[in-house]
């Protein structure tokens, strides 16, 4: 994703799940979550905003869908045409829906 380096926050963020898996995503995508946005805000001065590494309380299976969604939202969030946006519900495993719901509520995304 070359364009991330030109506009807005550049670079990448590393998320570490509760069970130790790491996910790397563009900072621009991570910013679409209210929680990550304030965590990465440099004026507040959390350590995370320096290191760009965030430890999450979710397990990897849940965090994976969340990360997928964040990238999805960064990609289609500004699309005007509604029918051009693919249906993300197909990517949510039913068995994890409740856990993802709790994670989504916490991460504000």
């Amino acid at each position: 994703m070359d364009d991330t380096e030109e506009e807005g926050p550049s670079g990448w963020v590393k998320l570490i799940s509760e069970d130790g898996f790491t996910f790397i995503l563009p900072e621009k995508a991570a910013q679409t979550s209210g929680f990550f946005k304030s965590t990465l805000n440099s004026t507040v001065g959390f350590q995370e905003s320096e290191t760009k590494v965030i430890r999450c309380g979710e397990r990897a299976a849940v965090l994976e869908t969340v990360v997928e969604y964040l990238v999805f939202k960064a990609e289609f969030g500004n699309t005007a045409a509604k029918n051009a946006i693919p249906d993300f519900t197909k990517r949510i495993p039913a068995g994890l829906a409740l856990e993802i719901l709790m994670a989504a509520d916490f991460l504000d995304c």
């Binding site: 969604y69 946006i85 993300f88 519900t89 949510i92 039913a94 989504a104 995304c109």
Partner: peptide, 22 residues
């Protein structure tokens, strides 16, 4: 335009509500 992840999860849950084991 993009619904929040929480909304999407709720949609999924509503779809599977009859099959709680899912």
């Amino acid at each position: 335009v993009v619904p929040t992840l929480a909304e999407l999860c709720l949609e999924t849950i509503a779809q599977h509500i009859d099959d709680v084991e899912a």
